[in-house]
């Protein structure tokens, strides 16, 4: 279980903290969507989990602080990309194999074949979509129990993303947990089983898709409701700008 207790993060020189007393528990085997507007704190939260940023509070993995001893239980796919641009896919496989003892060669080969990615080409020569795919492939093959993805599909076309969701559902083991941050709420609603909403550094919503189903609410409506989304704000703004009544 990945547990965040009262996690607060304040960047130097900023007035408001980026994360405020965040409490979150991720049991094994869940696919959790993390949603929030730009700057809500999604990426900061993920970086705190890995210890890339200093924070107040406590983050534990299966009851223990995250250190070098257990960090390989976590993998990370980020839209900023964490691969080596000059290294080939095969080079990455070798690097991962030598550093992560649970690296799954079979899964790696299978996903590389499925997405038809070149094995002996440097990553810098991949298209952005391919780079995203490769980033996610690495995170899925590392052999981690908790796979953290930060907007992994930014730049991929809809068919590509669709394929990925299906592949994800097909290959994930019962103990593998995914925390995925994305703006593509409607797209992922079918494949996540829990949604966590973050707003201005605070967790403002946490609901399972079963609960949503019971309530007869769609994920996007739940998000809009939790965010107090004003449907008429666009027309109001346009009225103010143009001076004309917008429909």
């Amino acid at each position: 279980m990945l547990e965040l207790n009262n996690v607060t993060k304040k960047y130097p020189g900023t007035k408001a903290p980026s994360l405020i007393n965040v409490n979150l528990t991720l049991p094994r085997g869940e696919i959790v969507g993390l949603f929030g507007e730009n700057g809500a704190g999604k990426t900061t939260l993920m970086k705190c989990i890995f210890g890339f940023l200093q924070y107040e509070g406590k983050i534990t993995l299966d009851g223990e602080r995250i250190t070098r001893k257990n960090i390989e239980k976590l993998s990370f796919a980020t839209c900023e990309h964490s691969f080596f641009p000059n290294l080939t896919a095969a080079g990455h496989r070798d690097f991962y194999k030598s550093n992560f003892k649970n690296f799954s060669d079979k899964r790696f080969q299978g996903l590389m074949d499925f997405f038809d990615l070149p094995m002996h080409k440097a990553l810098r020569h991949f298209s952005t979509g391919q780079q995203n795919q490769f980033e996610v492939i690495l995170s899925l093959c590392q052999g981690a129990d908790y796979i953290i993805m930060d907007e992994p599909f930014a730049g991929n076309d809809v068919f590509n993303r669709e394929d990925f969701y299906k592949v994800l559902l097909g290959i994930l083991g019962p103990n593998e947990t995914v925390l995925i941050s994305t703006h593509l709420i409607e797209e992922v609603s079918a494949f996540i089983n829990r949604a966590v909403l973050i707003k201005k550094g605070r967790i403002v919503g946490d609901i399972t898709t079963d609960e949503l189903e019971e309530n007869g609410t769609s994920l996007i409506d739940y998000v809009k409701e939790t965010y107090h989304y004003q449907a008429d704000r666009v027309s109001k703004a346009l009225n103010a700008i143009t001076g004309e009544e917008q429909i």
Binding site: G51, F52, E72, L74, S82, N99, R124
Partner: peptide, 18 residues
């Protein structure tokens, strides 16, 4: 830090010395 953030990968390796 160039062209990607491979530092994220390096910083989450089990071997700190890598």
């Amino acid at each position: 830090y160039r062209e990607s953030k491979s530092i994220y990968l390096m910083r989450r390796l089990p071997k700190r010395s890598e």
